[in-house]
Nucleic acid binder design. Structure first.
Length: 733
DNA sequence: AAAAAAT
């Protein structure tokens, strides 16, 4: 769709669609949005074909309601709940008409969106045959042998006509042909609902006695902490003698090796790489309390099989919340949820660790909502309608915008079920809508540190009544660059408020926050959540670095969703281009893209419109996309935690997944150490361009299963094995 | 190196 058809008043024509004026279905009326009533339906936001792609994600990303607004004034998530349902049911029109017919004007937003004709897919044709590109089935088998390949006439010199690279793919020249030409692509459901019920497989659980009273006593050595204003007198007395703690129920100490690193003096042993916990190397202030968090984490392990027969109501959640969870697809609690929900409801501070994809969002989101509701009731303020300017009472912080958005997708319906309002506060989108929501009154703020601080400084966000603060990916939020803003934000919340820290890799790195803000936190993890019980198959290919892009392409040339990690934004772009050169539809996700594109590109993967997403570590943590079955680490991570989080984008909720890490020869030792820290045992395989890589993956899979079993035995009988030795341990087979 | 504010 070329930019043509000048609209009235010099408004940008980008979103104007001529077909619209020709009388598409239900388009006759002139309503809000027609700038000039005499003009034939100038309503840039209502151009028919694009509507289908105006997804929930995009609405939410722009600060709008996840709901489809039926009329003005109900566009933010906090304004629309309930009304949509009842309004929609009375509306005699078809669903599509309801969806599109009355949409309020949103020119200020739509104009932010790139014009369709600048879409990545509309780029100028390259010199090879485009028609083949999108039909993977018809394309002749490709030899990945470099010399064999037809010279790529689309080599970089052809691209001189491209503008300087801004990573903004919308700068590209328009392409003439229509998107609808793509009928030769394999059929695909473009209509996947991101909020589809969780398809978590829960059949592998064993029975459990859900008895909270036989929990081990906790140990504390924090007598120096100031008393907390909160009323905690009803708590059971606690022991302060750490040695009294019972041994872990689970025989194997799955953190034993990591603890080796934490021991004083280990640093001097020469085995510790300098980049391990760099922040703490430079910050001796943690030294005395280093092990505290870790020790407690281990003390509170819940058995993974202990949730059999327990439902959310048993854990103390109210009927509305339980129903909301059911609608989200969560019928019964996962272990980490069973562990943390009752404790959060008690009002205690909680540190929670559950492996990637284990359901942490609900583990903190549902009880936070329920608790907010209870506090509200106790204070006698419940039941009233929304009050203007009601200050937020819960805050959820996340490290990336995409994660904040995703958390809101889970928490908002839960909050809505009890009449509470949420809003997202993050950067990259105009703040007006977010501020508007705050002015109307919001109960739960979900966002990223930068914009939250910004709005605080502007005096538009007041956290003084926040009594529940959640840090998702809490260890990451304590990394250099994040920690200080996070501290400043938490200091703005109500003193004595409840704090919940969650992460799959929660470790002593959160000590800075724990010491300042938490009081006698309960620490929970799920026992036996180690790599041996993982559904992820790990592989390492040792490659020649100059073949990296081609090997990535060869690996990504497959059915199924693939997530590729790159260390830098520039390489993510480069790889994306390279994949497209191979005819693999791929999009990028990194911080050089504007937020609209980030959201859109991620949605391209979740919706299945592309199979390959090339991302920086912006996508490493927390992001859930159904059915990613292959993660390719084009660049190996530097930290074992990064490895675990990236790998955790696949194999979620008991599904199978595979991770392939590409490393050059000279990185084998470092990689081996990293994997040791992550407690993953993998054989390295030398691989060359042109090898049957997928065959290699399949061959590896069977072997790994056997090895994994062996590793458990080795480690459980020798928890003191040094990390450096771990990957050298050869299975008996 | 990346992420997180907007300018």
């Amino acid at each position: 769709m070329p930019k043509n058809k000048k609209p009235k008043g010099g408004r940008p024509a980008a979103n104007f669609d001529p077909s619209y004026a020709k009388g598409g279905k239900g388009r006759g009326t002139q309503k809000a949005g027609s700038r000039s009533p005499g003009h034939r339906g100038y309503r840039p936001e209502e151009e028919a074909p694009r509507k289908e792609r105006w997804s929930r994600d995009e609405r939410v990303a722009s600060g709008r309601s996840p709901h489809r607004a039926d009329r003005e004034g109900r566009a933010d998530s906090s304004a629309g709940w309930g009304a949509e349902r009842s309004g929609a049911s009375r509306d005699p029109r078809s669903r599509d008409d309801r969806r599109y017919g009355d949409r309020p004007a949103r020119p200020h937003y739509r104009e932010d969106r790139p014009a369709r004709s600048y879409d990545r897919d509309d780029r100028a044709p390259r010199s090879f045959d485009r028609n083949d590109r999108n039909d993977r089935n018809d394309r002749p088998a490709r030899s990945y042998d470099r010399d064999d390949r037809a010279p790529r006439s689309f080599d970089r010199n052809d691209r001189n006509d491209r503008p300087a690279r801004s990573y903004d793919r919308d700068d590209r020249a328009p392409r003439s042909f229509d998107r609808n030409d793509r009928n030769d692509r394999p059929a695909r459901s473009y209509d996947r609902d991101d909020r589809a019920p969780r398809r978590f497989d829960r059949d592998d659980r064993a029975p459990r006695s859900h008895d909270r009273n036989d929990r081990a006593p906790r140990s504390y050595d924090r007598n120096d902490r100031p008393a907390r204003s909160h009323d905690r007198d009803d708590r059971a007395p606690r022991r302060f003698d750490r040695d009294d703690r019972p041994a872990r129920v689970h025989g194997r100490d799955d953190r034993g090796q990591r603890r080796e690193f934490d021991r004083p003096g280990f640093r001097d042993s020469g085995r510790r790489p300098s980049n391990f916990f760099p922040a703490r190397d430079a910050a001796p202030r943690f030294s005395s309390n280093d092990d505290v968090v870790l020790e407690r984490l281990e003390a509170e392990a819940i058995q993974a099989d202990a949730v059999e027969g327990v439902d959310f109501a048993d854990l103390g959640l109210g009927g509305n919340v339980v129903r909301a969870l059911r609608e989200l697809g969560a019928e019964s609690p996962f272990p980490i949820q069973a562990a943390t929900i009752p404790v959060v409801l008690e009002g205690r501070d909680v540190l929670g660790r559950g492996k990637t994809g284990s359901g942490k969002t609900i583990a903190f989101g549902a009880p936070a909502v329920e608790r907010l509701m209870q506090l509200w009731t106790e204070s006698g303020k419940a039941g009233g309608r929304r009050q203007m300017g009601r200050k937020p009472r819960a805050l959820i912080l996340a490290p990336t915008r995409e994660l904040a958005l995703q958390i809101d997708r889970t928490v908002q319906p839960i909050a809505q079920s009890v009449g509470l309002f949420t809003t997202q506060i993050y950067g990259g989108v105009p703040q007006g809508r977010q501020v508007g929501a705050l002015q109307r009154g919001v109960d739960i703020v979900i966002g990223t540190p930068g914009r939250i601080e910004d709005l605080i400084e502007q005096g538009r966000l007041d956290l003084s009544e926040v009594v529940i603060t959640v840090l998702d990916e809490a260890d990451h939020m304590c990394d250099l660059g994040f920690l200080e803003p996070v501290q400043r934000i938490i200091r703005r919340t109500a003193p004595g408020g409840q704090k919940l820290l969650f992460s799959a890799t929660l470790d002593k790195g959160v000590a800075a926050l724990v010491d300042e803000f938490l009081v006698e936190p309960a620490v929970h993890e799920v026992a036996g959540e180690d790599q041996a019980s993982s559904t992820i198959d790990h592989r390492v290919f040792v490659i020649d670095n100059r073949d990296k892009r081609d090997i990535v392409a060869q690996l990504a040339q497959r059915e199924g969703k693939t997530l590729v990690f790159s260390r830098t934004r520039a390489f993510a772009e480069d790889l994306t281009d390279h994949l497209e050169d191979y005819g693999i539809r791929a999009v990028a996700l990194h911080g050089d893209l504007n937020q609209a594109k980030r959201t859109r590109n991620l949605h391209q993967l979740t919706s299945g419109r592309v199979d390959v997403l090339v991302a920086t570590d912006v996508a490493a943590r927390g992001i859930h996309v159904d059915d990613i079955d292959l993660v390719i680490q084009a660049d190996a991570p530097d930290e074992y935690k990064t490895y675990l989080h990236r790998a955790g984008r696949t194999g979620r909720a008991g599904k199978e997944g595979r991770v392939v890490t590409l490393i050059p020869r000279n990185r084998q030792r470092r990689m081996s150490e990293l994997l040791g820290r992550a407690e993953i045992d993998v054989d390295f395989v030398d691989v060359r361009l042109g090898d049957d890589l997928h065959g290699e993956l399949e061959r590896g899979a069977a072997a790994v299963e056997v090895e994994t079993v062996e590793v458990v035995e080795v480690e459980s009988s020798d928890v003191t094995a040094s990390v450096a030795d771990t990957t050298d341990v050869e299975p008996a087979s």
